[in-house]
Deep mutational scan, measured.
Amino acid sequence: KNAAQIVDEALNQGITLFVADNRLQYETSRDNIPEELLNEWKYYRQDLIDFLQQLD
Results as ranks from 00 to 15, higher is better:
E35L: 12
L52S: 01
R23Y: 10
Q25A: 08
Y43S: 09
F18L: 06
D47Y: 08
A3P: 13
A10K: 00
Q46R: 09
P34R: 05
R45T: 11
I33K: 01
A20E: 13
D8I: 15
V7G: 01
Q46N: 10
L52M: 04
Q53M: 14
L37R: 03
A10F: 03
E36Y: 12
R23L: 14
A3E: 02
E9H: 07
W41M: 06
L55T: 11
I15Q: 01
Y44I: 03
Q13T: 04
F18Y: 13
F51S: 01
E35G: 07
N32I: 12
G14R: 04
L24Y: 01
T16P: 02
W41H: 02
Y26Q: 02
L17G: 01
E9Y: 08
I49A: 02
R23A: 13
T16Q: 09
Q53F: 08
R45W: 13
D56T: 13
G14V: 02
N32E: 13
K1E: 02
D50Q: 11
Q46Y: 07
P34K: 04
S29E: 14
L55A: 12
Q13H: 13
L52D: 00
Y44C: 02
F51I: 03
R45K: 11
L11G: 05
L17R: 00
E40Q: 08
E9F: 07
D21I: 04
E27F: 14
L17K: 00
F51E: 02
N39C: 08
L11D: 04
E9N: 06
N32H: 14
Q54I: 09
Y43L: 14
K1N: 04
S29P: 06
L38A: 05
A4Q: 13
D47F: 08
E9D: 08
I6S: 01
N32Y: 14
L52P: 00
E27W: 15
I6L: 11
L52A: 01
N12P: 01
L17Q: 01
L37V: 06
N39V: 10
E36S: 12
D8H: 15
Q13R: 10
Q13C: 08
P34D: 06
D56G: 14
E36Q: 11
L11C: 13
N39L: 13
E36G: 08
I49W: 04
E9L: 04
F51L: 05
K1M: 15
N22F: 07
Y44Q: 03
R23D: 14
F18N: 03
L55Q: 14
N39R: 12
I6Q: 02
A4G: 07
R23E: 15
A3T: 04
F18T: 08
D21T: 04
Y43K: 12
L11K: 14
K42H: 14
T16C: 15
Y44F: 07
E27A: 15
D47N: 10
A10D: 00
Q53C: 11
E40H: 05
E40K: 08
W41K: 00
F18I: 07
Y44E: 00
Q25K: 10
Q53D: 06
Y26E: 00
I49S: 02
F51C: 02
L48K: 00
T16S: 07
I49T: 04
Q54R: 14
D31A: 11
D56R: 10
K1V: 05
D47Q: 14
Y43I: 13
L48Y: 01
P34G: 06
D50L: 12
N39E: 13
F51K: 01
A10S: 04
G14C: 08
A10P: 00
